[in-house]
């Protein structure tokens, strides 16, 4: 059980790292600020690569989130075990996945989203991302766990 928990943690951390890097890579900032010049980070300036990386990381994240959710339900772990920080992160992750999912639909051929809807989606997705980063950082520093 402990090994599975650790593995989940590592997968979550690595996914979060790649999804964040590739997500910020959607903006033309990594080349401007020489970050893409660092060895091994050149892909951050290649927009089609960051696009694909973001999608792959999203697939891993969605699979992991759904797995943990169902694992939690099936094992009758008890909702009262989830901490306040845990609930907050669950809400943010849900927002990220829903807004991201809508953006994936938007990117499909022959799909026309309203201009305002696209801008709102972009900003909402970015806001959820920033929130998740800050809350995750807070959780690491203050040693706040998902479950008690």
């Amino acid at each position: 059980m402990k090994t599975t928990g650790k593995l989940q943690k590592y997968i979550y951390a690595i996914t979060l790292l790649f999804i964040t890097l590739s997500g910020f890579g959607q903006m033309p900032i990594f080349k401007r600020y020489y970050i893409a010049d660092l060895p091994g980070l050149g892909w951050l300036a290649q927009f089609y690569v960051t696009h694909i990386m973001h999608y792959i990381a999203a697939i891993v994240l969605i699979t992991l989130v759904i797995y943990i959710l169902f694992d939690f339900i099936l094992n009758r772990s008890g909702l009262n075990r989830i901490t306040g920080t845990g609930y907050f992160k669950i809400a943010i992750l849900t927002g990220l996945i829903v807004s991201g999912g809508l953006m994936v639909i938007k990117n499909l051929p022959n799909i026309y989203f309203g201009h305002t809807a696209v801008i709102v989606l972009d900003l909402v997705h970015l806001s959820f991302c920033m929130m998740l980063l800050f809350v995750s950082l807070y959780s690491v520093i203050r040693k706040k766990r998902w479950v008690s």
Partner: peptide, 12 residues
């Protein structure tokens, strides 16, 4: 990505 939730459920 549509298969991802199903994979998660199946794994659980």
């Amino acid at each position: 990505m549509l298969i991802a939730p199903l994979a998660g459920v199946a794994a659980a």
